[in-house]
Write a protein that binds this DNA or RNA. Structure first.
Length: 514
RNA sequence: GGCCGGUUCGUCUAUCGGCUAGGACAGCCCCCUUUCACGGGGCAAAGACGGGUUCGAUUCCCGUACCGGCUACCA
């Protein structure tokens, strides 16, 4: 597989989300690729919570992440929730660890103290902003003009430190150096350090930024392969240098930068707003913002099967080289490979997403769907007393359900009388002969001894012939009488399942309405 | 603006120098079905552009265009 220095090492991968809100399609896909890769190599899948930005912390977001992973069946081997030998797995709880490495970098001359205030930074950006350079960077050209330990005297620095002046630690990017690495998806990617700024490593509040934390933790947690979104590519040189400066270069994981999931229309990264705007979910499960109380619908609640959700995510940017698009998680574990991940971003197509769900509903057995369907019916005050009947109904209607919620319309009439009848569709062609036919049909059914689809159909057709009516023009009225509208499986199958009493009663009800 | 990445039917994609460019979703038509589906069959639909390299380029190289990402004491 990967013929490299990790051949003899146990594969360890991590998903490192920030607990700032609901888990997005792209996030779950990153989890999935991590999970598949880990399981394929009998490795470990770790979830590490990157909560270093205290201002963005959102209550409940972490639980939401774990609930989502559980729903998807992508359960981590190690995490703050599941424990593990490298605990703690929450970066806020590892705060003390990072400072020592940051100081180490300063001592080695790879990083420095910077005392600039927010206002000073803003001023610098304003001062040096030109039309050719709209966003000046804190880099090798400008750092000498700022307040930091590269240009201040040792005395001044000691004094500022002694006075408890707030400071950050910044990496000292080399002036002109080419750094490159081999991405599992993209191949060799290289950068010139002149183009990247002196990123903050340790913030004034003592928390590390992502850049420091991800390197330190990936090292300490013995991560062998690191997968993340393409938006991280530009900061790869910072991370690369950090691995080197900290003396861990030999342990550096193999990286893969995953393509982005884009808006279906317009341009740009898919966001929660696009879902609201276009009417489809982007979060895995319902997410309620604790502050605004705003509810964002999820794929789960929209009626998606987790198997379908995982399947559709897997093939958004990846394929196995054949024409097959339907995969179980086991098949994905077996077939997945990072090399076959497409490089370009993919626009999300909700229609195709629904197709996956439809396929999964069709291939699921009635007993696999039973609980989920029963729950949806129960939410709509339909109590299912007979589970066997529900299974029969599910098998009868599942091919016409795209979302689990479709089971409501497709099967409620098996359990209770329709509340509305689409009599408007019968009316135009209704006449005395048909009226008489249905009165007699109800009577005949009432006296039937045999109650099964085939005999009911036979009886129906014989009676139609007796009235010199074509069965065709009677089928639609009968359907509407039994189910309420122009939908559902075969009419005689329905009559058979709902039984004599309900069949007769519904026919008479509707005849009375016409 | 700079840096990095990307670019095949409307959408997701196959192709690893030989292509009549294949599949899937969506669309349209037909069959099956006197509902809606399922199923079966069919139609329409693509290599951003310009240069190279080559007997031969969608495939390799270089430009250009376009799209995206990044350019925070956010991740």
């Amino acid at each position: 597989m990967y013929k490299n220095k990790y051949m003899n090492k146990k594969v360890r991968v991590r998903f490192a989300p920030s607990p700032t809100g609901g888990l997005h399609l792209g996030g779950v896909r990153t989890v999935l690729f991590n999970y598949l890769f880990a399981k394929q190599h009998q490795g470990d899948f770790i979830v590490r919570i990157e909560d270093t930005d205290q201002t963005r912390f959102v209550e409940g977001a972490e639980d939401y992440i774990f609930n989502t992973l559980e729903w998807c069946g992508l359960v981590p081997d190690e995490s703050p929730k599941h424990g593990g030998p490298f605990a703690p797995y929450r970066q806020s709880e590892r705060k003390a660890i990072y400072r020592q490495y940051a100081e180490e970098l300063v001592n080695a001359g790879y990083a420095y103290y910077a005392f600039d205030t927010t206002e000073e930074l803003e001023q610098m950006r304003n001062n040096y902003k030109t039309s050719e350079n709209p966003s000046p960077q804190y880099n090798h050209t400008l750092r000498a003009k700022m307040r930091n330990s590269t240009c201040l005297s040792a005395n001044d620095v000691s004094k500022l430190l002694a006075d408890q002046t707030p400071y950050v630690i910044r990496i000292k990017m080399p002036e002109d150096q080419t750094v490159s690495f081999t991405d599992m998806i993209r191949g060799e990617v290289s950068f010139n350090t002149a183009q990247v700024d002196d990123k903050v490593l340790l913030k004034a509040d003592g928390m590390p930024t992502y850049h420091l934390a991800v390197v330190v933790d990936d090292y300490l947690m013995k991560i062998t392969h690191a997968f993340r979104g393409e938006e991280w590519l530009p900061s790869a040189p910072v991370h690369l240098l950090l691995w080197k400066y900290l003396g861990w270069e030999a342990e550096m994981p193999l990286w893969a930068h995953l393509p982005l999931i884009l808006k279906p229309d317009g341009h740009g990264k898919l966001s929660k707003r696009d879902g609201d705007r276009l009417g489809f979910p982007v979060f895995a499960m319902d997410w309620k913002d604790p502050k605004s109380e705003e509810l964002t619908v999820g794929f789960k609640e929209r009626g998606f099967l987790p198997e379908a959700f995982v399947n559709l995510l897997a093939v958004l940017g990846w394929n196995d080289g054949t024409d097959n698009e339907l995969f179980t998680i086991e098949e994905l574990i077996e077939k997945f490979s990072m090399e076959r991940v497409h490089k370009g971003g993919a626009k999300f197509d909700y229609e195709k997403a629904k197709w996956f769900n439809h396929e999964w509903i069709k291939k699921s057995s009635a007993s696999q769907l039973n609980n989920k369907v029963a729950k949806i019916l129960a939410q709509n005050n339909i109590e299912v007393k007979d589970n066997e009947l529900l299974n029969t109904v599910i098998d009868l209607v599942k091919e016409r359900c795209t979302l689990l919620s479709d089971f409501l319309m497709q099967s409620s009439f098996f359990f209770k009388n329709p509340e509305q009848f689409d009599t408007a569709s019968i009316q135009p062609k209704w006449d005395a002969t048909k009226n008489q036919f249905f009165i007699e049909l109800a009577n005949a059914f009432e006296l039937s001894i045999l109650w099964n689809s085939a005999d009911l159909e036979k009886e129906f057709k014989e009676l139609a012939a007796a009235h010199q009516l074509k069965p065709g023009e009677l089928m639609l009225p009968l359907r509407i009488m039994l189910v309420g509208g122009k939908f559902g499986p075969g009419v005689f199958d329905i009559a058979n399942l709902i039984g004599k009493e309900a069949t007769v009663a519904r026919i008479r009800t509707v005849v009375g309405l016409l």
